Simulated assay, not measured.
Amino acid sequence: MSFAVTTESRLTTVDVTDRIAAAVPDGLEAGICTAFVQHTTAGLVVQEAEPRLRGDFESFLRDVVPDEGHAHDELDGNADSHLRASLVGPDVTVPVADGELALGTWQSVLLVECDGPRTRTVSVTTVGENRP
């Protein structure tokens, strides 16, 4: 199963928890759910979705990786996006318990856009034990 996410800014986060949870099949009692963003300039992270923290996370990525001054920029001007996405990683794996994502109280799955605005594809795969 996959779904599209359209972003509106160059560097932003989008809460995709509900869309990933919707991909957990009915009847899956226990297992794992892996979400994977199929792009080299976006990533996924499990983190709190509080707006100020999301802004702090975006600022952190800007501070760690400068916007300019990278060799790849000669090709298409987005080396910063590739580097930021590599820090985040393209996937997350979340346990499934009692048919639902077993996230902690404050945990959400965020898509981290590093080269927007764009439309991104997130692929979701689940494996596990079905209810009898």
Rank of each mutant, 00 (worst) to 15 (best):
L101T: 11
R84T: 03
A23H: 04
V64F: 06
A79E: 08
E100A: 15
A85Q: 00
A21Q: 11
Q47R: 02
R10D: 05
D115S: 09
T6D: 04
E29D: 15
T93M: 12
M1Q: 15
G99A: 07
T105Y: 01
L103T: 02
R52M: 04
D26H: 08
D73R: 03
D115P: 05
T34N: 10
V124A: 01
V24G: 08
T12D: 10
S2M: 10
D73A: 03
V94Q: 15
T40D: 04
A85Y: 02
S86L: 11
A85N: 03
D115R: 10
T126V: 05
V16H: 06
A97L: 13
V16Y: 02
T41S: 15
V88S: 12
T7G: 07
H70W: 15
M1S: 15
V96E: 14
A23N: 00
L83C: 05
E74Q: 01
D98N: 14
V5K: 08
D98K: 11
V94K: 15
T41I: 03
M1P: 13
F36V: 13
G69Y: 08
C114W: 06
A102K: 04
E50W: 09
S9Y: 01
E129W: 04
R120Y: 09
H72V: 08
A4R: 15
R19C: 06
G31M: 09
D18Y: 03
E50M: 11
V127M: 08
A79W: 02
L87T: 12
D80S: 13
D73I: 00
R120E: 05
G116V: 07
E74N: 03
S81P: 02
G77D: 14
E29S: 13
I20K: 13
E48A: 09
A4Y: 12
Q47L: 08
V24Q: 03
V24R: 01
D73W: 02
D67I: 05
L75E: 11
V127D: 13
V88N: 10
A49N: 14
A71M: 06
S86V: 10
R131I: 05
V92M: 14
A71V: 04
V16Q: 05
G69K: 04
D73C: 01
F57N: 04
P117S: 14
D76R: 00
F3E: 10
F60R: 03
D63C: 00
L53T: 07
R84S: 06
V24I: 09
L110P: 13
T119K: 00
L83M: 07
G104E: 09
T126L: 01
T119M: 08
A30F: 13
R118P: 05
E68V: 05
A85E: 06
V65S: 12
S59E: 13
T126D: 02
A35E: 07
P66Q: 09
T7E: 04
T40G: 11
H70T: 10
L101V: 11
V88Y: 10
D18P: 02
A97Y: 09
V124L: 02
H39P: 08
L111P: 08
R54W: 05
E74H: 05
E48Y: 09
E74A: 05
P51V: 00
E48F: 02
G116E: 14
L75W: 02
Q38D: 10
A97V: 13
